[in-house]
């Protein structure tokens, strides 16, 4: 898209608001999301389908509306996730970097405070996350597992549902950037 096209696109002023968070929030939310994945599925195995670090990545990215910041957020959260697994460092990092960048890019075009769009984004980015991870595992690590599409679709549906109230809670922590 050229600069001319950019200027033609009608963007209401409310849509391009950029939100910021306190440094404490930047650290706490990803840590809590990762701890949730570490601890909670032990007792509620059905909650292992929840990819909270991904949802946090998407939320921060769409609220900041800065693709580099989104990519960096995804990278750090992904690397933290990687460090608690036994797979090589960078697998989740790369995937979440791409997701963070894409989410921030999408947020530049759409009203990301719309619940419907938030659901669609969570659903779509979850599937993209799983597909990317599966593809990377095959290409870089030589994994031979099959991609489980039905399970991924169900998990994406559940993640999208969880994302709506979760993002509402996260909205309480945001403040408009100067």
């Amino acid at each position: 898209m050229t600069e001319f096209n950019d200027s033609v696109v009608h963007t209401p002023p409310g849509r391009m608001r950029v939100w910021s968070f306190r440094p404490f929030t930047w650290v706490l939310l990803p840590v809590l999301a990762i701890l949730f994945q570490v601890y909670v599925p032990r007792f509620f195995s059905f909650l292992s389908y929840l990819e909270l670090p991904l949802l946090v990545t998407v939320y921060f990215s769409i609220m900041r509306r800065q693709p580099p910041a989104g990519a960096l957020t995804g990278c750090l959260i992904g690397l933290a996730q990687d460090s608690l697994t036994f797979i090589p460092l960078g697998m989740y990092g790369i995937v979440k970097t791409v997701i963070g960048y894409s989410a921030a890019s999408v947020s530049l075009r759409f009203d990301v405070e719309n619940s419907g769009l938030r659901y669609v984004m969570s659903f779509g980015f979850f599937i993209a996350h799983q597909v990317l991870f599966w593809a990377l595992s095959h290409m870089l690590l030589g994994a031979h597992d099959d991609f489980k599409l039905p399970q991924t679709l169900i998990a994406a549906f559940l993640n999208g549902i969880i994302a709506l109230p979760l993002f509402q809670v996260f909205d309480k922590l945001k403040s408009e950037a100067q």
Partner: peptide, 8 residues
């Protein structure tokens, strides 16, 4: 605990 990741 469990390692993060969907059904890791």
């Amino acid at each position: 605990g469990s390692a993060p990741g969907v059904q890791s």
